[in-house]
Simulated assay, not measured.
Amino acid sequence: MHDDGADPVLASYRPPSQLVVDKEIDHLDVHCRAFIGLSPFLTLSTADADGWPEISPRGGDPGFVKVLDEHRLVLPDRQGNNRLDSLRKVAVNPRVALLFFVPGVEETLKVFGTAELLAADALDVDLTEFGRAPRSVLVVTVQRAYLQCAKAVMRSGLWDPASRIDRGALPPFGTMIRDHCRLESPLPDDATLRAELALEL
């Protein structure tokens, strides 16, 4: 654990319990594997050579991330916006963090390690989804993993249907993007944009 005595704010926190410390493991055990196998969504954190961070949502069918063994997993890269922010960062700084979610489960799974960017056909693993192979894959070598307690998801009510907001609480996505980009002409309505996205899945 870190020595936080020099920082008065950090020093004001009580130390973590021994259980919280001991739950961190250096591999994917049977429970981590089961969690990943049920997860349709994760966030991928990367950073460039100077440490500037990036975070990206990744999704697919449950189990779209494949566990090769207790120390390696494969994250396929699907059709996206072609900014390639995360992949460009991995190319210069291989350190990554993944946070896995399972709908209806309030705990999450954190995985830390290093990633290697490979062509989609570099592995003898079937990663076809929605009838298409991925554009590339990240092979993550796991260094640390642990299950995160449910407090944050419980507080947010993330899986509680009563917590869902009406989409009308925000402007249409096309309107927000038009304003971000300061466009003069309107973009297609959200139904058209979603139909176009569905064709790219």
Rank of each mutant, 00 (worst) to 15 (best):
M1W: 09
H2F: 07
A6S: 11
L10G: 13
A11H: 10
A11E: 10
A11V: 02
Y13S: 04
Y13Q: 11
R14S: 11
Q18M: 12
Q18R: 15
L19W: 13
V21T: 07
V21H: 10
V21M: 13
D26Q: 12
D26G: 15
D29C: 12
H31M: 03
C32W: 00
A34W: 04
A34Q: 14
I36M: 11
G37V: 02
G37H: 03
S39K: 06
F41A: 10
F41I: 03
L42E: 00
L42W: 04
S45A: 15
S45F: 13
T46L: 08
D48M: 07
D48A: 07
D48H: 08
D48Q: 05
D50N: 09
G51S: 07
W52K: 15
E54I: 01
I55W: 05
I55V: 15
I55N: 15
G59I: 03
G59K: 09
D61S: 12
F64Y: 14
V67E: 03
L68W: 03
D69V: 10
E70H: 11
R72E: 05
L75S: 02
L75T: 01
L75R: 11
P76I: 07
R78E: 00
R78Y: 09
N81I: 05
R83C: 05
L84E: 05
S86C: 12
K89A: 09
V90P: 13
A91P: 05
A91L: 15
V92R: 09
V92D: 01
N93K: 12
P94N: 03
R95M: 00
V96G: 01
A97K: 04
F100I: 02
F100Q: 03
F101S: 13
V102K: 12
V102F: 11
V102H: 14
E106Y: 10
E106T: 12
T108C: 06
V111P: 00
F112V: 07
A115Y: 08
E116D: 14
L117Q: 11
L118G: 03
A120N: 02
A120L: 02
E129G: 13
F130A: 14
G131C: 08
R132W: 07
A133R: 15
A133N: 06
A133E: 13
V142I: 12
Q143H: 14
Q143Y: 01
Y146W: 13
L147Q: 14
C149Y: 07
A152G: 04
R155V: 00
R155W: 00
R155E: 06
S156I: 05
W159E: 02
P161F: 06
P161L: 04
P161A: 08
A162T: 10
A162F: 01
A162Y: 00
A162Q: 12
S163A: 15
S163F: 03
R164Y: 08
R164M: 06
R164S: 09
D166M: 09
G168D: 12
G168C: 04
A169Q: 12
L170G: 00
P172L: 05
G174Y: 04
G174P: 09
R178V: 06
D179T: 07
H180M: 09
C181L: 14
C181D: 12
R182N: 08
E184N: 11
S185W: 04
D190H: 10
D190M: 06
T192Q: 14
L193W: 09
L193M: 14
A195S: 10
L197V: 01
L197Q: 12
A198T: 06
L199C: 02
E200D: 02
E200H: 07
